[in-house]
Design a protein around this nucleic acid. Structure first.
Lengths: 360, 360
DNA sequence: CTGAAAGCGCTTACAG
DNA sequence: CTGAAAGCGCTTACAG
């Protein structure tokens, strides 16, 4: 196939053309473009005028390619390890890996610091390790607040840009946050709940996590969820169920006891991906009448979505969060592109009718 | 800030390294990589072995940059013109423009062929013009089936790759389709409807379009919507309302008449972005009790979402559709990257609680 | 069948 | 303060 119609006759103006017109070298033009010192005011003005006139747009690809010759940039990534119990974290990791492959050719090295979500000490240990390694930039999942703040302080002192992912810590200085607005995520869940609520029915709010009181993500969602009902309804039709035992046996026992008492429950909202445990219980007890709302695009959750035990999954593109987190650091450090301070991830609603088209 | 820790010591293996190991020139390696003729079987095998061994990953940026020296590639884009009435098409156009800016530096020229959605003749005229211009690739919104098939036939004959966008035409040969699965889109709307339906209520299905019987998009969604109720309910609680008058006066008159008769209607489903007209009517008649479901992330629709007259908007990332359509052609023609035959766009649910985070 | 050279657009030492 | 040269990793004529 002959794609070549003609040689490019109107190449977009580049550094070369600007240099030609300004009667200077390309190096000088480059200095002006990047506001680097060592150019006389006069030449600078002249060159800037030409840049304006030509509406010069730098070729991003060429820039990146040129930068490939620079030295190594080391990035650190702090995130929960993937276990059977916390399959969720596979997705951000995939996004991180994807970004790594993409930017490896440009001299970026990435080191993972994994911790066990259930053991605060493992988090602390990895934070300490990061302080020893002193990478050039870090991507942090701030599961435990205290140590996270400590790490952020260290970063500020050492001028290491830090990106927060998945949940934010208010009032802390960081390059940016990438993740959902947790309050709105819970608020949305409440809105869906309200649409599905039939007259006289009650709603059960379920937290299943080893750590609840310190879990920023869960607390934020619950807050949003409750705010909705406070706003829209005079009496809150809510029943609460918390458990720090995350195994099926404990959860099912708790559910059985509660639902025996509370007969009017028509909807169950689970504040994280452990919704699968409730779905399992619904299946075993044969209750298809209850609407179940939960979190995250995990294969086990999708299975129950298909079977009809889970009705809505709220998903926040975990893979994209990881990908974008790494890329933000890369662009900031290597390309000097400013970061968006709060990059709020879409809050998506997934049902059995649209899950096949969802993209993490 | 000192980013440069060390000069790259482990550069990823590239063409140069492969050439060195194979004792050939970089040109020969390039020929093997791209399966171009003119290399002896033996060297080919040898080079391929080394490629395997090093797990060589080509540097996409460098490749694109090198290709910038090639001649011009001309792309044609056939899509509805943006008018006040059809603001929807602004979004795909934005995506197309974004792609154009991105690939312009690589010798791509893009020509728009706009037509009036309401006038089939304008579509036919632009199809004829494309046949005269014979671009190297086309992106088509196949609003009118007959002329679209004609154009696709022409493309096949002339070996011009064609990408379909927004709606598909079954059984036609094309490079790929980029858009939603329309049936599932309607099915999802029905599912939401069903969740919101209170006992005894009926649902009104509304089509507002100059052309309904020939409108592939509307027909597909309606089919999915009806299929759901046929599947899940013994009696269909549906009332239909079609109008080819798309002004507010006609629509409101029709609605008023119908709702005076049908008192049990609790939910209205509008099959396209004209849902705004129904929202306006609900506002003017002060009916906040009816749940309204419609399509597309338009500013006027979002206004009514905020005010509470529209409850759900189904959105299918129109901007991404345009962007991806152009990029698919680009990658196919310039980078020889194979296209995905059916790129099905996510079907998103937008409410007043998550619209602020939505990304087209 | 194969290689040497030039080029894509930008950046970076280095020399002056 | 400024320029000439080399380089990023890949591709492309052209010459043999």
């Amino acid at each position: 196939m002959n794609l070549v119609r003609q040689k490019k006759d109107h190449p977009l103006a580049g550094v070369k053309e600007i240099a030609r017109r300004a009667n200077v070298s390309r190096g000088t033009v480059d200095r002006v473009i990047h506001n680097r010192p060592g150019v006389s005011e006069e030449t600078k003005r002249h060159i800037n005028a030409i840049i304006e006139e030509l509406d010069y747009q730098p070729n991003v690809l060429a820039r990146r390619l040129a930068l490939a010759s620079r030295g190594t940039v080391r990035l650190g990534v702090l995130l929960p390890s993937v276990s059977e119990e916390t399959e969720y974290w596979k997705a951000p990791l995939e996004g991180i890996d994807k970004a790594e492959t993409e930017i490896k050719p440009y001299g970026v090295e990435l080191k993972h610091y994994f911790f066990d979500q259930n053991v605060q000490a493992t988090f602390a240990r990895q934070v300490a390790q990061i302080m020893v390694d002193q990478p050039d930039g870090v991507l942090i999942t701030p599961t435990f607040e205290e140590e996270s703040i400590q790490l952020l302080g260290f970063c500020r002192e050492k001028q290491i840009p830090a990106v927060l992912m998945n949940s934010d810590i208010p009032g802390q200085q960081r390059l940016c946050y990438i993740g959902p607005e947790l309050f709105d995520s819970g608020y949305l869940a409440a809105q869906l709940t309200d649409y599905c609520l039939k007259p006289g029915q009650k709603v059960m709010v379920v937290n299943i996590a080893r750590e609840i009181e310190n879990n920023v993500a869960i607390l934020g969602k619950v807050e949003g969820f409750l705010a909705y009902f406070r706003e829209k309804r005079s009496e809150e039709p809510l029943v609460h169920f918390h458990t720090t035992d995350t195994d099926y046996v404990s959860v099912s026992a708790g559910l059985s006891a509660l639902l025996a008492r509370e007969k009017e429950i028509g909807i169950i909202f689970v504040t994280n991906s452990r919704v699968v445990l409730v779905a399992e219980w619904l299946e075993k007890t044969g209750r298809k009448d209850i609407v179940l709302i939960g979190y995250d695009f995990l294969s086990s959750n999708i299975d129950y979505l298909k079977k009809g035990y889970i009705d809505f999954l709220i998903c926040e593109k975990p893979q994209e969060q990881g990908y974008r987190g790494v890329m933000t650091l890369f662009r900031h450090l290597v390309m000097s592109v400013p970061a968006i301070e709060d990059y709020l991830i879409p809050i998506d609603i997934v049902t059995s009718a649209n899950y096949r088209f969802y993209r993490n």
